[in-house]
Each structure stands twice: as structure tokens, then as C-alpha cells.
Amino acid sequence: MIELSTAAKDVILAFADDEHMIGSRHANWIGLGPFLEEDLAFCSIAQDELGHALALYDLIVPSSEIDRFALLRDPSQYRSCTLAELECATWDLALVRHWLYDTAEELRWKNLLQSTVPGLADLAAQALRDEAFHTSHAEMFMTRMHRDESARLKVEAALAVLLPAAGSVWSPTDTEAEAVAEGVIAASSETLSQQWVDTVTTDLERFGLAGNTGVTLGDRTIRSQGFESFHTSLGEVISLDTAAIW
């Protein structure tokens, strides 16, 4: 494993935890998607996100320890954002979160395309291939929601719930300024968040949907409501036998 600066590790950990949480939350829809074909597509997206998380953890944790690191840390040690952690118990919430998160995720990978961290730029290029599908998938649904009044109202209600939390994805790590100076990331979270607000605002207009965009940052050291039970459920299998090698 390569030696990385604290700033680099912090950026990678925050992104990896986001990907882990969103992938796991999406995966809760396995078998419950609105129809079979969408169930398959959405769960593939979940699998892609978990794959990204694994690849990112692999840069900062020895391979043999990734499972334990990903699943058995104390909740206070996670650095995921509220948007990724939230439970989206209805399909409209899950869809809107998927769109908001992947719009941000694409910007975050692009921000790593020139990263000085060995291997990270290649990983970003590969992940962006997945993201092209994820964003087109989200857009495919979002562009259709204004056509049906009940669908539009549901999605707008979901936007009202999620937009205030969505900016949390741009909560910077404590050492972000160093990460920018070291070339780990090209631009700051703040710069990216402005691009994201522009994109989301333009898209909502294009989709014919109403929603108030803006960014309210969160704190990556604080877990959101419901995290503990979610975390326990993620660790259910590995906790059966913590000494076992999977």
C-alpha cells in the first residue's frame, strides 16, 4: 500500500464512506423496485457504488482489513454525508436521492481525473464510465415525472425533503485545503458545490419540477439519524463470526 498524506486519506475516506453508504442504501431496493427491469438496473447501480467504495478503501486500508474497516468501525469513525446515509423508504425518495447524489458524484470523480494520488486518476476515469450510465438512468426517470400529476407531486414532495440535506455531500474534510494544495483534488468542495447547484437548478427547470436548491453543509464527523440501526444491519453477517476469513 502506498504512503499517503493525511489530507489525501481524508478525502478518499469521505468519498469511500459516501459510496459505501449510498450503495448499501440503494441495495435495500433489491427485489422491491417498481418493476423487474428497474429493480435490476437500480441494484446494478448499487453494486457499482459499492465497487467504487471498495476500490477507494483499497487505497487507504490493507486489502485483508477492508471488510472489517468498512463494516465494524465505530459510527463516530465514519465520514459519510447525510445525503448518502439517509433512509429513503419510498421509491420517489430513492429516485430523487439517486439523481441528486449521482449528479454530485460525477463532479467528484471529474475532480480526481488529474489527482496526484497514484491510481486515483485511473480509478476516476473508470468510475466515470459507470457514472455516465447512472446519470442517464436518473435523468430518464426525472424527465418523465412532470407528465403525470400524481408523479410530479410525489417527486416534488421528495425534493422538498431531500434538497435541504443534499448539500451535505459537499461538506469538506477538515484537511481539504491541503488536499487541494497537494493536487489530490483539483478544486475545492465549495467550487464543485456551486457547479452542482447550477446543474441541479437548470435540470429541475428542464424537468418541469419545482424545488429550492442551495447548499447547507453538514459535518462529516456527525452521523445522521437512523445511522446506528443501519450500521448494525450492515454488520449483521460479518458479526456472526468476526474471526472468520470471508
Binding site: F35, L36, E37, L40, A41, S44, S136, M140, R144
Partner: peptide
């Protein structure tokens, strides 16, 4: 075979139904 609301949706969803 597969189901979708229209051809555009089908082209997005076909990948994961048949060519993962």
C-alpha cells in the same frame, strides 16, 4: 423480453436486464 414505458426507457434498462 422486457417491459418499459417507451423505447427510450427500454434502451436504458435493457443493459442491466440482458447485458450486465
Amino acid at each position: 423480453s422486457m417491459q418499459a414505458a417507451d423505447a427510450d426507457m427500454a434502451t436504458v434498462l435493457a443493459r442491466d436486464s440482458y447485458c450486465r
